[in-house]
Design a protein around this nucleic acid. Structure first.
Length: 473
RNA sequence: GCGGUCAUCGUCUAUCGGUAAGACAUCGGUUUGUGGUACCGAGAAGCUGGGUUCAACUCCCAGUGACCGCCCCA
C-alpha cells in the first residue's frame, strides 16, 4: 500500500468518525422504514401496474364502483365489525390516540371502513346490488416474513343488498378471475358454509360440547379458543388439534334449512360456472362477521407449498351490527404482495409501460436553451422523449441514448440552432439527415410509425441493460 | 408470541485480530460534433450499542433488521 493511499484511508476514516459524531449528537437516524414495511421501487412497479390494471378492468366489467376510505378509522369500528376476540383486533391492530383524544386505528382490513361509508352515506337507497371495490394499504402488527408485511396492500370487493346465492358464486368468480387474469393459473378455491346466526349458535354449542370432551388433547391456544372462539379450533395446524378437528361435527352438517339451500345452490352455480372448487369443512375465517358462505383462494407451487392469496365470504349481519338497516352483503380481499410473488414465480408478464423511442441531444449553450422547449413540444404532440440535458459531450449523450434503446436521436447543436434545423439520426442504421425545425415533429411521428423496430441488440448489451435495472433497485 | 439462519461499497461476492479486495452498476476520460466493444481513472462498504484486546470489520453479548419454520393470516 502506498503512502498516498494510507493517508487517504486515514483521512476517510477520520471523516467517517466525525460524521458519526455529528449524527450521534443529533439522534440516530435509521435509514430504513419501520419493521415489516418496505418501499415499492420503480423496478417492481410494472407488477403493481399489472395488478391495478387487471383489477380495475374486472371491477368495471362486473359493475363495481371504486371507493376510497381513510386509512384511519375509530378503533371501535374494527372492534365491533371485525370482532373483539379475533387475533386481528386483539393483537395486530395499530391503535393510537390522536392529539384530540380520539381512539383510532390504522385499518387492518377494508370491509369495515367500506361498510361504515355505506351506512353513513345512505347508499342503501341506491339500486341493489351495490358493488364497491377499493385498493390500498392495510396494517397489521404481525411478525413479518416473506409475503407477510405489517403494511400490505389489498384489493377488496364488496356487494351489498343481495342475498341470493347466485351472487356468492359470482363474487367467487370475480376473485378467481382477478387472480387468473394476472397469469396465476394453478389456484384452488375452497368453500364452506358456517351458517347464519341461528344455526351457528346451535352448531357452536354442539362443537363446544364435542371439544370439551376432547379438551385434554388440544394445544394451549385451542384451550383458550374454546372459550372465546371455538370455531377457530377447526383450522388449528397443530397435529393433535387437527386430529380432533377431523372428527368434530361439521358446520355444513348442521345448517338450518335456509342455509343448507343457500349453500347447495351456491355449489350448483359454481358447477354452472365450471369453476373448480373444494369443499373444506374445516374452513373458518379469522373475522367474526362472516355468515353462510366463506371461501379462500390458494395457490400451490410444485413442491405443494401453499400460500393464501385471499379470501372472503358473506356477512349478512354486519351492516345491522354497525347500525345500518339489515342488509345482506358479501365480499373478498386479495393480498397484492402475494399475488405479485405468485406472478413472479410463474413468470407472468408484468405490464410494460411505453418507453421513449426518441432521444434529444444538445450541444452548446444556444442549443441547450432551445432543446428545453423542443422537448416539451415533442411531449405535447405525444412523442415520448428521453434526454440527458446535464451532460455536455455529444458522445456521452449518445451513449445514454444507445443504452435506452431509442430508435431515433435528435441532435441539436450550435449550427442547427442557428439554422433552425435539427439532425435526425436513426440509431439502428446510423443514417442521419438534417431537417428544418418546423417539419421536425411531423417527420419524427412519421418515422416512428413506419420504421420497423429492428432488434439489433446483442445479448451482451441486453445483459448490461438488465444489470442496470437491478442496480437501480 | 416462539424457534432457526444470516448481516461488508447501490448490487453480488472475497479477505483479515494490525483500519478491507474484486466483479457488475454509476460518473468522468481516451485530442472537447457522433452510440454498443476496449483501455484508463474517480466516487462508493464493515447494521447499532456494549464488552474482551496494545489493537476488533473479524472474537463475545445485547439490540435492530432480513430470511426460513411454527402461530396466524393477505
Amino acid at each position: 500500500m502506498s503512502i498516498k493511499q494510507k493517508v487517504k484511508k486515514t483521512s476517510r476514516k477520520t471523516l467517517k468518525q466525525e460524521k458519526k459524531k455529528v449524527v450521534m449528537e443529533k439522534e440516530p437516524l435509521l435509514l430504513q422504514p419501520p419493521r415489516g414495511m418496505k418501499d415499492i421501487l420503480p423496478n417492481d412497479q410494472c407488477y403493481w401496474d399489472q395488478v391495478r390494471r387487471s383489477t380495475e378492468k374486472l371491477a368495471r366489467e362486473y359493475g363495481y364502483l371504486r371507493i376510497d376510505t381513510p386509512l384511519v378509522e375509530f378503533s371501535n369500528l374494527f372492534a365491533r365489525g371485525v370482532g373483539e376476540g379475533t387475533d386481528i383486533v386483539e393483537k395486530e391492530m395499530y391503535n393510537f390516540v390522536t392529539k384530540g383524544g380520539d381512539k383510532v386505528a390504522l385499518r387492518p382490513e377494508m370491509t369495515a371502513g367500506t361498510c361504515r361509508a355505506y351506512i353513513q352515506h345512505g347508499m342503501n337507497v341506491l339500486p341493489k346490488p351495490i358493488k364497491l371495490f377499493s385498493t390500498g394499504p392495510v396494517y397489521r402488527y404481525d411478525r413479518p416474513q416473506e409475503g407477510r408485511y405489517r403494511e400490505f396492500y389489498q384489493v377488496n370487493f364488496d356487494v351489498f343488498g343481495e342475498q341470493d346465492a347466485i351472487l356468492d358464486a359470482q363474487v367467487i368468480q370475480v376473485a378467481a378471475r382477478v387472480v387468473q387474469s394476472l397469469g396465476i393459473k394453478a389456484v384452488q378455491i375452497q368453500v364452506n358454509s358456517i351458517g347464519c346466526a341461528a344455526c351457528r349458535k346451535e352448531y357452536r354449542e354442539l362443537l363446544i360440547n364435542y371439544l370439551e370432551s376432547k379438551k385434554q388433547k388440544l394445544c394451549q391456544d385451542c384451550k383458550n379458543r374454546l372459550e372465546n372462539n371455538p370455531l377457530r379450533v377447526l383450522d388449528c395446524k397443530e397435529d393433535k388439534c387437527s386430529q380432533v378437528a377431523a372428527t368434530a361435527p361439521q358446520s355444513v352438517d348442521h345448517l338450518c334449512d335456509e342455509c343448507r339451500v343457500h349453500f347447495k345452490s351456491l355449489l350448483e352455480y359454481l358447477d354452472e360456472l365450471e369453476l373448480p372448487y373444494v369443499i373444506n369443512p374445516q374452513l373458518v375465517r379469522g373475522l367474526d362477521y362472516y355468515t353462510k358462505t366463506v371461501f379462500e383462494i390458494w395457490s400451490a407451487d410444485e413442491e405443494g407449498r401453499k400460500s393464501a392469496l385471499g379470501g372472503g365470504g358473506r356477512y349478512d349481519g354486519l351492516i345491522k351490527l354497525l347500525g345500518g338497516e339489515a342488509t345482506p352483503a358479501i365480499g373478498f380481499g386479495l393480498g397484492v404482495e402475494r399475488l405479485i410473488i405468485e406472478m413472479k414465480r410463474v413468470q407472468a408478464k408484468p405490464y410494460r409501460a411505453p418507453k421513449p423511442r426518441v432521444f434529444l441531444a444538445q450541444l452548446g449553450d444556444l442549443a441547450k436553451k432551445k432543446s428545453l422547449k423542443l422537448f416539451s413540444e415533442l411531449e405535447k404532440s405525444g412523442i415520448l422523449v428521453a434526454e440527458s440535458f446535464g451532460r455536455g459531450s455529444l458522445k456521452s449523450q449518445l451513449r445514454v441514448a444507445d443504452r435506452l434503446g431509442v430508435e431515433l436521436t435528435l441532435i441539436l447543436g450550435q449550427k442547427e440552432a442557428l439554422d433552425k434545423t435539427a439532425i435526425i439520426k436513426n440509431m439502428i442504421t446510423g443514417v442521419q439527415e438534417i431537417v428544418s425545425m418546423d417539419k421536425l415533429i411531423d417527420l419524427v411521428k412519421r418515422k416512428l410509425k413506419t420504421d420497423n423496430v429492428v432488434v439489433y441488440h446483442d445479448n451482451n448489451h441486453q445483459n448490461n441493460n438488465h444489470d442496470g435495472d437491478h442496480a437501480a433497485q
